[in-house]
Design a protein around this nucleic acid. Structure first.
Lengths: 219, 219
DNA sequence: CCTCCACCGGATCGTTGTTCGAGTAACCGG
DNA sequence: CCGGTTACTCGAACAACGATCCGGTGGAGG
C-alpha cells in the first residue's frame, strides 16, 4: 500500500491534462529556450513519466503548435472604432507577444491554425473590410501586415534575445574587420548601436498603413 | 592492395572540401527538406564516412549556416541607376531565392553573417543612402524591406511549399467547419483560392517603397 | 627511407522522439 | 458488493541523431 505508486499530491498538484502540459511547456520554453524543451524534461517538471505525455498529446510537434497558439491568448482583440487604431494596436500587441516569448519566432514557419491565431486574423480581415478595403488590396494588406510583423519579430528575436552577447560582439568585430568590404553596412547597418527597433517598426508599419489607406478612396 | 580502402574515384570524384560539403548539403536540402539533412546521410551522398565531415566543419549548425548563405549567391547585385528599380529587383530576387529553397525559410531565425548576405545587405543600405534616405528613416527602411521579404517568404513557404496538399485540405476543411466563428477569415482569408501571393507581395513592397520615397523630399 | 601531417573513418557515447505492453485507479451496470 | 470496462500511467526498449576518441593511411618533403 504505502509502497504503491505515488499519489497525486506527491506528484505535484492537479491531474495531468493537455492544458497543464501546454502551460508548463510555455513556462519551460520561456525559461530555457526552444532547444531545451524535451519530452523528458517537460514530464519531469510536471512530475510524471515522459511517456505519459503521449496519452494527452500525439507528438512533440503538437506541444509546440499548442504552445505557439497559447501565447496569442495574451493579445487582446481591439475594440477601437477607428480601423487604423485597432489594426495598429493588434499588430503592436502581436509583436510584443512574439518578443516576450522569443522561442516563438523560430516556430513561425509552421502552419498556425490554432483558435487564438485564427480569431485575431479574423479581426484583422474584418477591420480592413470594415474600413472599406476591397480586393485585391484586402489580401495584400492582410498579408503585408502579418508578414511585416512576423519578419520584424523574427529578426529582432534573433539578434536581441536569442543571440547571446558573445555572438553579438563577435558579429560586431566581424563587421569592423571588413569595414572596407561593406562600407554602407558597417557605417549605418544594424548593431551600430544607433538603431531603434521599436521606432523602426512603427515607421514601417505606418508606411504600410498609409498605403492601405490610400487604396480606400480610389478603390 | 585492391582490397584496401576505396580509392578517390570509387568514392566519387574530387576530394572532400568544405565547398563540396556545402554544395551537397544544399542539394540534399532541396531534394528532401530540412529534417532529412543528417550528417550521416550527407556523408553517404559524398561517399565518405560521417565523422569525416567534422574535419572540415565544426558542427551541423555550421553546415546549415553555410548552406543558407550559399543560396544567396544566386541573387544578383543590381546595377540599376534608379534606386527604386534596384531595390525592387534585389528584394524580388531575394524572395525568389528563398522560395526556390523552401527549407531556408525555417533557418531565417539564425544570425545571417555570411559574405553573400552581407554584400547584398550592403547594397541595400548603399542604394537607400544614394537615394537620399537619411536617419532615422534609413534604418526603418532597411529593416522594413528586409523584414517584409523575410516574413513573406516564410509565410508562403510554409503554406505553398512545405505543407503538403493533405495539410492544406485539412486546413480548408477546418475553416469551413468553423465558418461562423471566423466569418471574415473564411470568406476572404488565405486558402480561398482567390489569393495571389506574387501580386500581394508586389503591392506591399510598393507601399513600403512609397513611404520611403516620401521621406526623401521632406527629410 | 623515414617522418610528418593533413585527412579519413570505425567504434562509441549520451540524448532524443516515440512505441509497446504491462500495469493501476476510478467508475458503472448488475 | 462485484466484474469488467474505461481512462490513464509508466518502465523498458528501439532506432536515429550529433558529436568525440583514437587509431589509421597516404602523399609530400627532407
Amino acid at each position: 500500500m504505502w509502497l504503491r505508486a505515488s499519489s497525486r499530491e506527491e506528484r505535484g498538484g492537479p491531474p495531468l491534462s493537455r492544458r497543464r502540459i501546454v502551460e508548463e511547456a510555455v513556462a519551460l520554453l520561456d525559461a530555457e529556450g526552444a532547444d531545451r524543451l524535451t519530452m523528458r524534461r517537460l514530464a519531469e517538471r510536471l512530475g510524471t513519466g515522459s511517456t505519459t505525455l503521449y496519452w494527452h498529446v500525439k507528438t512533440k510537434d503538437d506541444v509546440l503548435d499548442l504552445a505557439l497558439d497559447a501565447i496569442f491568448a495574451a493579445v487582446p482583440i481591439p475594440e477601437d472604432q477607428e480601423w487604423r487604431a485597432g489594426v495598429t494596436r493588434l499588430i503592436g500587441d502581436w509583436r510584443a507577444t512574439l518578443l516576450r516569448h522569443p522561442w516563438s519566432a523560430a516556430l513561425l514557419g509552421r502552419p498556425m491554425l490554432g483558435p487564438n491565431v485564427l480569431a485575431r486574423s479574423d479581426f484583422l480581415y474584418a477591420a480592413l473590410i470594415g474600413a472599406g478595403v476591397a480586393e485585391p488590396h484586402l489580401t495584400a494588406a492582410a498579408f503585408g501586415l502579418s508578414n511585416f510583423v512576423i519578419g520584424s519579430a523574427l529578426m529582432q528575436a534573433t539578434w536581441l534575445v536569442n543571440a547571446d552577447a558573445e555572438t553579438r560582439d563577435a558579429a560586431r568585430d566581424h563587421m569592423d574587420h571588413q569595414r572596407d568590404r561593406y562600407p554602407a553596412l558597417a557605417a549605418h547597418g544594424p548593431l551600430t548601436a544607433t538603431d531603434d527597433w521599436d521606432e523602426s517598426f512603427e515607421r514601417g508599419l505606418n508606411w504600410l498603413l498609409d498605403g492601405v489607406e490610400a487604396t480606400i478612396a480610389t478603390g
